[in-house]
């Protein structure tokens, strides 16, 4: 148990010190992007890795968070803090309503239904021009202020997003090591047996879906306040698939997979932007889709449990043994 906390605090320390050591706005902006995606993937990992349910529609919640806060803060002058919370509440509500029929489905059908949901929401962003600005985008989203402190430069925003990511990781970690976490994992383990010990499967699927929607929504809201301009294409179905790739690359069975997967994804796409034009001088954005498509296939074949699982295999550690180790128990096991 203490070992588990140690990792978390080391991670926090690393995050805290990074901007003091590295003075590059470019690197900070990359880390901020990683932060947004980590927040989304944190919720998604709980949904996919622990409860074993797929979603190909989380770009929708990312977008709902972004547009809600943009609309309320820019058009109606709300404080961004309030509009971010409003976005999270709306996302939670939509997730709940959509989840009730959707989670009666399993496997491929669930994947398709969530994909469909994402496409519908994307179309709404495009067509409700009076609110969203349509394909022209939404301009002039204000930056976030805390008293006189404005999160307008990269260094400040870096701390803001990573504090949120850190808190959400803590929250998820607490969930995992509790009655609720075991209930979620039991769904992935065996639905028949969860039923047999009195676990209301539908309720837990919905709860974790709502939680993952809130994470995605807050990430999207913060993203909107960071870039100050959004348009529907930032929230299309491709992004949902990228989220899936991040979760799988990082490893859906560990909460750290969210951070690792997001980092690998963002760093690789930055690298691609540098390298590909050198090789194919007239390549557009499509190479990214091809590359990550191949990456997904390769990961699923050779490391279906992601990088964190592969790393743990190498270091001879296994997730659940660190969850509850006999050492932490004080003489429980012989």
């Amino acid at each position: 148990m203490h070992e588990r906390r140690l990792g978390t605090w080391l991670f926090a320390l690393g995050i805290l010190l990074f901007p003091l050591i590295v003075h590059s706005n470019y690197l900070l902006s990359i880390l901020i992007m990683i932060g947004f995606y980590s927040l989304v993937c944190n919720g998604l990992t709980m949904l996919m890795g622990y409860a074993g349910q797929i979603s190909l529609g989380h770009a929708a919640f990312y977008g709902i968070g972004a547009y809600t806060t943009a609309y309320l803060s820019a058009t109606h002058g709300w404080s961004p803090w309030l509009s971010i919370i409003a976005g999270a509440i709306i996302s939670a509500f939509i997730a709940f309503i959509v989840g009730i029929p959707t989670f009666k489905l399993k496997g491929h059908y669930l994947a398709l239904a969530t994909l469909g949901f994402g496409v519908i929401v994307y179309t709404c962003f495009k067509e409700f021009t009076s609110i969203t600005g349509g394909m022209n985008g939404f301009f002039g989203i204000p930056s976030i202020k805390l008293f006189a402190w404005e999160f307008s430069n990269d260094a400040r925003f870096y701390y803001l997003i990573w504090i949120v990511v850190f808190l959400s990781l803590l929250f998820s970690q607490n969930i995992i090591h509790s009655r609720v976490g075991r209930a979620l994992r039991s769904i992935e383990g065996s639905e028949a047996a969860s039923d047999a010990v009195g676990i209301d499967i539908m309720r837990y699927k919905l709860q974790v879906f709502v939680y993952s929607a809130i994470c995605a929504s807050i990430a999207g809201s913060l993203y909107a306040h960071y870039v100050t301009f959004i348009n529907p294409q930032a929230f299309d179905a491709m992004l949902s698939i990228y989220f899936l790739i991040m979760v799988i690359t990082g490893g859906a069975s560990s909460i750290w997979g969210a951070v690792i997967g997001s980092s690998v994804f963002v760093l690789l796409s930055e690298l691609l932007k540098e390298v590909v034009p050198l090789v194919f001088s007239n390549a557009g954005g499509e190479f990214e889709i091809v590359f990550f498509g191949v990456l997904l296939v390769v990961m699923l074949i050779y490391m279906p449990n992601g990088l964190t699982a592969a790393w743990k295999k190498i270091t001879g550690k296994w997730r659940t043994s660190t969850t509850l180790s006999p050492a932490a128990k004080g003489g429980g096991g012989r």
């Binding site: 075991r182 039991s186 065996s190 010990v197 009195g198 043994s321």
Partner: peptide
């Protein structure tokens, strides 16, 4: 139908769900 994604004791702890 044991929960293969858990340790032995976690399986049993999951069994106690209804009284928690």
């Amino acid at each position: 139908e044991v929960f293969t994604n858990m340790s032995v004791i976690e399986n049993v702890m999951t069994g106690a769900h209804r009284n928690m």
